[in-house]
Amino acid sequence: MRFAVVVFPGSNCDTDMFYAIKEALGEDAHYVSYRESNLSNYDAILLPGGFSYGDYLRSGSIASFAPVMEAVREYAELGKPVLGVCNGFQILLETGLLPGAMKRNDHLKFICETTPIIVTNNQTMFSSEYRQDERISLPIAHAEGNYECDDQTFDELKRHNQIVFQYADNPNGSKGDIAGICNKQGNVLGMMPHPERATVDLLGCDDGLRLFESILVNWREHHAVTS
């Protein structure tokens, strides 16, 4: 399986993502420039964390206009997996590939810690290797991770089972304890916690590895059916 790790000016978690795929998962990973306009050679697209374009204007706002994001949009429309982590989640919100927006953490401070996460929906291509309602641990590192949406959008997220991960102990004020959501089709996931920083025991926890294993398992099953 070929994973594309998109690199924006200011990305700083791209190497973590690359390592998670190449070394921990054992699959093929490639760095892809924000200037790229064709992603057809890849089986999954990963938007890493960091501070794309210095987080000027709003986190992820400038990156949403990068040439590669039009290719990401086209890729997502084909039903292929797109994962955005932290700043990658913010970019997906800014492009409209996911609903809602990010605000500053409710206490207006940067958070960097490992936090308990609940797997709210294990019926997605990103979460199928977890147990339903399983409690896992993942690192977070953000100043603008306070997810917000209007009540109608929140009701739709719940109705369509789009809330994939929730905080067990909400650290930033996110509405509904939301830590990660997917689109209605289930092939685009945005999350603030960093699964790529929790893929081997040496990092203190390997709970994040199963997210990438979920992508791989579902990709193999899909290709087994269509081949």
Score class of each variant (00 low, 15 high):
D155R: 13
C86A: 15
L98E: 05
N172A: 01
Q162S: 04
I118C: 15
Q123T: 12
Q123F: 08
Q152S: 12
L92Q: 14
F110P: 03
G176T: 02
G176K: 02
E113R: 13
L157R: 00
R159T: 11
N172D: 01
S128F: 04
V164K: 03
N87E: 09
I140F: 01
Y147C: 02
N122K: 10
F110D: 15
T153W: 06
D169G: 11
Q132R: 06
V119T: 07
F110L: 08
L98R: 02
Q132G: 06
D150C: 05
L98V: 03
A141N: 04
I163K: 01
L138F: 09
P99V: 06
H160R: 02
K175Y: 08
N87W: 06
L108S: 14
I178F: 06
F154A: 08
N146S: 14
C149G: 07
V85Q: 14
D177I: 01
T153D: 12
L97D: 11
T114F: 15
N87L: 07
D150L: 15
G88R: 08
I91T: 15
S174N: 03
E129F: 14
E156M: 07
V119Y: 12
C112W: 01
E148R: 13
E94Y: 07
G88W: 08
I140L: 06
N105A: 12
D155G: 13
T114M: 11
C149I: 05
L138W: 02
S174P: 08
H142G: 00
A168H: 07
P99S: 02
V85W: 02
T153L: 06
I91Q: 10
Y167I: 02
Y147E: 00
C149V: 10
Q90Y: 00
H160I: 00
E148K: 15
I117A: 05
D151S: 11
I117N: 02
Y147M: 03
L138Q: 08
M102Q: 03
G84H: 15
D133K: 11
H107D: 07
L138H: 13
I111L: 09
M125Y: 02
D133A: 10
G145T: 04
G84F: 12
A143C: 11
L92R: 12
L108F: 14
N161A: 11
K175Q: 13
D169N: 13
Y130C: 11
C149P: 05
T120S: 15
D133R: 06
V119G: 03
N121L: 05
D169V: 14
T153N: 09
I163P: 02
S127Q: 07
P99E: 01
C112K: 08
T153C: 15
Q123R: 10
R135H: 14
I136M: 14
G96V: 13
D150P: 03
K103D: 09
T120V: 01
P171N: 00
N121S: 10
I111V: 11
D155K: 14
G173Q: 07
I140D: 04
